[in-house]
């Protein structure tokens, strides 16, 4: 079953009089439990496509249907709420809330969802165990290494039990050991929890781990390859 369905998606950025097409008529379906990498050179439209899938940007044309909901028709507040309940994000620069501890960063999403304290605490500890950071629960982001921060970011992305996780260049700031650890973690979560992961990347180490590779160039999908 397709968790994400993209039809004839276009995105044109306007800079004064100049129109810059970033996505040009993309059609794509992503099934539940996929471990997909969207790859392409810089400026190919990877991040824009990810932003459109995540409802962070409005398409110029086309639809993005997530689990039956056309998110292009949602209003701003509905979209924020939709993201809260359905989409997990992992960013290149980790982007944890600097004033909250690792535990609080993970809990924060569930707090926004209005979940009870007990539920929040048990899920947080479960996720911290899974990402191997239970002993750093009370550390603030500044006290964690880049790899540890990105693992907390993954745990945060999963905290809301989303339908899928969007990861934009998640390994760009990590060394090879941290990258390997992170990819192993995400692959394990993909297998254990059947969590759908979509990466925008040009990191070969991520591409090597991906089960499906969607190649994008100049806003077009130029290749779509099932590896496993």
């Amino acid at each position: 079953m397709a968790v994400i369905e993209i039809k004839n998606l276009h995105k044109i950025y306007k800079s004064g009089e100049v129109e810059v097409p970033a996505i040009r008529g993309v059609d794509l379906q992503i099934e539940q439990g996929e471990f997909t990498a969207i790859v392409g050179p810089s400026g190919s439209g990877k991040t824009t496509l990810l932003n459109l899938i995540g409802g962070l940007d409005d398409p110029t044309e086309g639809v993005v249907i997530i689990d039956g909901t056309d998110i292009t028709k949602l209003k701003d507040n509905q979209l924020i709420d939709f993201r809260l309940w359905n989409i997990g994000f992992v960013f290149q620069a980790y982007n944890l809330i600097p004033v909250l501890t690792a535990k609080e960063n993970i809990e924060f999403i569930m707090h926004l969802q209005g979940k009870s304290k007990e539920e929040r605490e048990s899920r947080t500890m479960e996720l911290l165990e899974k990402v191997g950071l239970a002993d750093r629960a009370n550390s603030r982001p500044s006290q964690l290494s880049g790899g540890q921060q990105q693992r907390v970011a993954v745990a945060r992305a999963l905290a809301s039990k989303p339908k899928f996780v969007l990861a934009d260049e998640p390994t760009a700031n990590l060394d090879s050991v941290a990258t390997s650890n992170l990819l192993d973690l995400m692959e394990r979560l993909n297998q254990e929890e059947n969590m759908t992961f979509i990466f925008a990347t040009h990191d070969q180490r991520v591409i090597d781990k991906a089960h499906r590779i969607v190649q994008i160039e100049d806003g077009h999908i130029v290749g779509d390859q099932q590896i496993k």
Partner: peptide, 16 residues
């Protein structure tokens, strides 16, 4: 500014 973008993207409402 970026932090606000992150907050909104992870699901924090504009009101909050």
């Amino acid at each position: 500014r970026k932090e606000f973008g992150i907050m909104l993207s992870i699901g924090m409402s504009r009101g909050k």
